[in-house]
Computed example of a mutant assay.
Amino acid sequence: MLYLDNAATTPVRAEVLEAMMPFLTHRFGNPSSHHTTGESAAEALDDARARVARVLGMRRSDVVFTSGGTEANNLAVKGIAIAAQIGRDAGHLITTPIEHESILESASYLMRVHGFGVTHVPVDSSGRIDPGAVAAAVRGDTALVSFGYANNEVGTVQDAAAIVAAVRSVSPRAAVHIDAVQAAGWLPLSMAELGADAISIAGHKLGAPKGTGALGVRGRIPIEPLLHGGGQENGRRSGTEDVAGAVALATALDLAEAERDADAVAVAALRDAFIAQVLRTVPSAELTGDPVHRLPGTASFTFAGTSGEAVLLELERRGVVSSSGSACAAGSDEPSHVLLAMGIPAGLAQTAVRFTFPHGLRTPLDAVAAAVASSVAAVGS
């Protein structure tokens, strides 16, 4: 079976498992405990924090370990917005309609519960955000702009630095958060280059276990914690830290960063050959997302006249595992909100299939493209 749903999750890398194992066994201490076992765990946690901060181009005190990308996004969107609202009237948030549910639902919560105004800046037919449109949406009370660096369904990559610069040109006060969950390992994450205030990552997209993630948030940005208790993570996320998870995330991120440039070039070449073969051999196939500005490991299509779920079943019969879009929306009968926001009709959106390739891929995908062609033909016949 060939697994091509790596945007949903990835297997844990052997190096990551080896690095985290001591903190599940003999170095099991609570990093807040003031004895040698706890201090050993605290040293490992501090080292992991420094390693993540180095990749993000931030200070180690800027890194908050979380349970994954969803929590990191919730902490960024709710935490920054609510902190900005304290002592002021209800504020304003800017995002787009193609974001991950953790951002869209957090924005909805702020609107319903805290009275925030929310502006969803539209995207074009390839899923790209116009930096000028974001700047035009900024108001005097805008607390936060939050957007994804790379889309989880179609792989479209945003000009993140240009969007941040556009916001800065009209408002030095509005904070900018980047959801880099899908971008990590494929694209540069240095906040010195991106210029944003906060960034989210998730370990299970990189070969670390599920339940690991981090939010990098600059120390000058006020943030209201969502979890209250013992004041861990510099008061921004209470709860006993998962030392093994932090070590795993740092190890996976280091490995991905070291391999990133060569990996992106090699996988993108295989992706492009796969896309060309599918478009050549499947008459109904249409590529979704930006044809140029896209993640190296993502190829997504619609197949008019089919059902995406039926194509997936045929593919699995032929030994290929893929998906119809975000794993977080799996089981829903509704068409993808991402595709709808890009102007794709609802009926066509329900024929979508997404292939997401692993880091380290070096094998041509000709057999997969042939399986796509035969699967679509079987469903359409």
Rank of each mutant, 00 (worst) to 15 (best):
M1E: 02
T10M: 05
V12E: 13
P22H: 13
N30T: 14
H35Y: 12
G38M: 03
E39T: 14
A41C: 12
D46F: 11
L56I: 04
G57Y: 06
V64C: 04
F65M: 11
S67M: 13
A83K: 08
A90K: 11
T96M: 01
E99T: 04
A107M: 00
G115M: 01
V123R: 03
P131K: 05
V138W: 04
D141Y: 10
V145H: 10
F147G: 05
V154T: 12
T156C: 03
V157L: 00
A165S: 15
R168H: 10
S171Y: 09
S171F: 07
V176Q: 05
A183Q: 05
A184D: 01
G185L: 01
L187Y: 08
P188H: 05
A198H: 06
L206G: 13
P209H: 07
K210V: 15
R218H: 11
R218V: 09
I223W: 10
H228C: 02
A248H: 13
L249T: 08
T251W: 08
A269K: 00
A269W: 00
R271Y: 10
F274K: 11
A276F: 03
V282W: 08
S284P: 09
S284A: 15
V292N: 02
L295Y: 02
L295R: 04
T302L: 05
L312H: 01
L313A: 15
L313K: 15
R317Y: 00
V320N: 07
G325T: 11
S326W: 11
A327R: 06
G331L: 09
D333C: 04
E334P: 01
L339T: 09
F355N: 03
D366Q: 13
A370P: 12
V372H: 12
A373K: 14
S374A: 15
